[in-house]
């Protein structure tokens, strides 16, 4: 099927609508950046200001002086860089095992995973808190990292499962004949072939850990272990009106997520058809 590319009026109309929507969705971010450049403490604006008059980067310096912001940043990076590889490991292993399991087991694992998806884990913070408290694990990063054990989210496991299922079994059989172990199949045959899925899980899990407010907010007690979202929410309570300063903090927190997303966003727009890819042995 070929789509002709000619500049018709509807095409221009489409560009206009899509562009307008993109602008609308970009507007909060634009205001975030520009407002963070306003000198903190300067009188609040009274008229529309598309770019602050005396734009300055001093807020970005001051915020590091006001709070151990670098420390929070580092902690957040450490937690995310522990959580993401662990998530990739456990989720891909589980997904691989599911895809390679005998059909009846595969079915029950699928049901199990979907059930997990249907339990809103975010609503489980209360019993989880009591559980971790009784284990004496408050004020450590363990409660934050614990979900990596189960691949962080049943969805990631399912994504890997679907991807591994698309790989032709002959490939595995051939490798098996050459003496490869099951872990070898996963690592040498499976993982290289599901790289796009790994990338998607990587970005999704990074965002999940990097953005999470509630978990670190509940579990961390010592300032030395705070993560960025907690640090910023504390700053916010200290002073609700030094907004440019707070927004500078928000920019610092948002940038890594933005950069990572825009770097790999092309993997999100997979336009192929499952029917063309999915290999034929239906469950």
């Amino acid at each position: 099927m070929s789509r002709t590319r000619h500049r018709s009026p509807t095409d221009w109309g489409w560009q206009l609508v899509a562009g307008g929507l993109a602008l609308l969705f970009g507007l909060p971010l634009y205001w975030l950046f520009t407002s963070s450049l306003r000198p903190a403490g300067s009188p609040p604006p009274r008229t529309v200001e598309w770019f602050p008059h005396a734009a300055t980067l001093t807020n970005y310096q001051r915020i590091f002086a006001l709070a151990p912001f670098g420390h929070y940043l580092l902690n957040s990076l450490i937690v995310a860089s522990l959580a993401v590889p662990l998530t990739l490991l456990t989720a891909s292993l589980a997904g691989f095992a599911m895809a390679r399991a005998p059909v009846p087991i595969q079915r029950s694992l699928l049901l199990f995973s979907v059930t997990l998806l249907l339990i809103p884990t975010a609503a489980l913070w209360l019993p989880r808190y009591i559980l971790f408290a009784r284990l004496g694990l408050l004020d450590t990063w363990l409660p934050l990292l614990a979900p990596t054990l189960m691949g962080s989210n049943a969805l990631y496991v399912l994504l890997f499962y679907w991807s591994f299922r698309r790989i032709s079994p002959e490939l595995f059989d051939a490798a098996r004949l050459e003496g490869s172990s099951t872990f070898g199949l996963w690592w040498r045959i499976g993982m290289p072939l599901v790289r796009p899925t790994s990338l998607v899980v990587l970005i999704l899990s990074f965002l999940a850990y990097w953005n999470d407010f509630l978990t670190p907010f509940l579990y961390l007690k010592s300032e030395s272990r705070y993560l960025l979202p907690v640090g910023i929410s504390l700053l916010h309570q200290m002073d609700t009106t030094q907004f440019p300063l707070l927004l500078a903090g928000a920019v610092i927190m948002t940038l890594p997520a933005l950069v990572l997303f825009w770097a790999v966003q092309h993997t999100f727009w997979y336009e192929g058809r499952f029917s063309e890819l999915a290999h034929t042995d239906e469950v």
């Binding site: 522990l82 284990l135 450590t140 614990a146 054990l149």
Partner: peptide, 12 residues
């Protein structure tokens, strides 16, 4: 505790 610790103990 053991399972969790074996999973994520280092550097925590």
């Amino acid at each position: 505790a053991l399972v969790l610790a074996s999973c994520a103990a280092p550097a925590v």
